Simulated assay, not measured.
Amino acid sequence: MCSEQTPTEAPQVDLVVAVDVGGMSIKRGLVSFGDGGAPSVESLPAQPIDATASADVLLAALRSAIDPLLRRAVDGQQADVLALGVAFPGPMDYERGIPAIRGQRKFDNLCGVDLRAWATTAWPDQTLDVRFVNDAEAAALGESIAGASRSSQRSLMVTLGTGFGAAAVVDGCGALLVGGVNVQLLFEALVEDHGRADDVLSAVGLAALLGVPVDGVAGAAQAAREGDVAISSSFEEFGRRLGRFLAGHVRAMNMDVLVIGGGAGKAFDLFAPSLRAEVRAEVHAAALGEHAPLIGAAAFTVM
Rank of each mutant, 00 (worst) to 15 (best):
A18S: 13
D135H: 05
T159V: 09
F238I: 07
G205C: 06
R102Q: 15
G36Y: 01
I66D: 02
V283Y: 02
G243F: 00
A220E: 05
R225K: 13
A230K: 14
R71K: 13
V81Y: 10
C111N: 11
R96L: 11
L156Q: 01
A168C: 10
F271Q: 06
A267W: 05
P68I: 11
G163P: 04
P48R: 12
D56M: 05
V183W: 01
G219T: 07
T159W: 05
L84K: 12
Q5T: 11
L141V: 13
A146G: 04
I231N: 09
A203K: 12
L84R: 12
S40C: 14
G261N: 02
V212M: 07
T301C: 10
S202T: 03
V250P: 02
E282F: 03
Q153M: 03
A298W: 03
V158C: 02
F164M: 04
A230T: 10
L141I: 12
A207K: 11
M157R: 04
A218L: 10
E137K: 03
V229P: 00
L294I: 06
L246M: 01
L201D: 05
G90L: 01
A61P: 00
V133H: 02
G261V: 00
D50K: 09
A10G: 14
Q5K: 11
D125L: 09
A136L: 04
G174N: 13
G211L: 07
L160D: 01
L156A: 05
V113P: 07
V130M: 07
L128K: 07
E278M: 11
